[in-house]
Simulated scan of single mutants.
Amino acid sequence: MRFSFSDDQTEYAAFLADLLGTVAGPGYLRAAWSAGHAYESTLWPKLAESGLFGVCVPEEEGGAGGTLVDLALCLEACGYHGVPEPVVETAVLAPHVIGEFGSEAERKKWLRAIAEGEAVASASFDPSGITPDGTRADVVVVKSGEELHLVTPDRASWQPLDGVDLSRRLARGTFAAGEATLLTADPAAAARASGLGAAATACVLVGVAQRLADMTREYVIERRQFGRALGTFQILKHRLANVAIQTEAARSLAWYACYAVAHRAADAPLAAARAKAAANRASELAGSAALQLHGGIGFTWEHDLHLWLQRGKALEGAFGSTLEHRTAVGGMVIEQLASPGAPVHGIEHAGTTR
């Protein structure tokens, strides 16, 4: 399959990356860590003004009418710059779930508000009820078994939690979910929502892995030992080359997953699972290499390394762990092999150009 982004997609992603390079970054992340649950975002209005939250909202509701493919590079930029906001949940998951499964009243109430940045959305797909920015969210997409619910603050109670990344403000939610909050009980809808979350988070993790790799490459070029730059030692080159290979592989899988999920391809669940597992692994490898190759300074609070290391660790479990996704991939491949005539890898779009 040949794949490329349009000029509009790449230019918008470049614009967003430039914006984030100016208004986000290590200083902003440190402030978010220090504020904890008292954090008040100054970044959210800028993201809303950029149009990020409206990309996947239908045009009739004030959005751009785009797809997950239009956000793939933007999500990577959010990971690279450490954006501590519920971007996946607000810009991807809520617009798709509400737009596809919500009532007309729910679509009218939420989609325009999301597009304009007036509503913060989150998602609770973990059976424990752990939700990023739960206490701040105006609406939460809750996955309960094979049901999807749309829960507002009056039907939720929250217990704030501290995770490994303090800039992601977690809370354990207890939801009064029932007929009044039910969007759909269709298992295919729940699977689609999970695929959207996994593919989008994979893109963010690719950005995290790339940031860790870039930080480490810059460090080993500058740091000298035994009269030589650390980066000239072959064993360190190999370590970073392995990180680069895994990151590029994860990037390709994440891009295809966005395409497959956006176009409801038959292999979308497989593509999303492969992408999330690969992105988890890329983040893990990049974090491990970064920590070890930085040496003692990498273990200190003063260095920015831990900000992205902790973000990667936090996101590795979001919308499915590596083990969960690898298990799912194995099951789908075995199922395909047991079906005569089914493509082993589930790729049915060979030769397609976008």
Rank of each mutant, 00 (worst) to 15 (best):
T327A: 10
L73G: 10
A105V: 11
G312L: 02
A191W: 07
V69P: 00
S41A: 05
A123F: 09
A176F: 06
H303F: 06
Y12N: 11
V57M: 03
A113Q: 11
V69D: 08
T22S: 13
I98R: 12
D154G: 01
E85I: 09
S128G: 07
P269G: 08
E49A: 15
G331W: 03
K46E: 14
V344R: 14
P269C: 07
T201P: 00
Q292F: 06
R136L: 13
E302H: 09
A257N: 07
L305S: 04
G102F: 04
M215E: 14
E302K: 12
G21L: 00
F125V: 15
W308N: 05
E59Q: 14
Y80D: 05
P86I: 12
T327N: 13
S288A: 13
K109G: 00
A31Q: 14
T131L: 00
A209I: 04
F175V: 10
V140G: 00
Q246Y: 01
L285T: 03
E335T: 11
R172Q: 15
M332N: 00
G287W: 10
V139P: 01
P26M: 05
R228Q: 15
P340M: 11
H37W: 11
E248W: 01
E85F: 11
L230R: 10
V206Y: 04
L309M: 10
A254Y: 08
S6D: 11
R192Q: 12
Q225A: 14
G331P: 02
G207F: 06
Y28T: 03
I130A: 11
G346H: 06
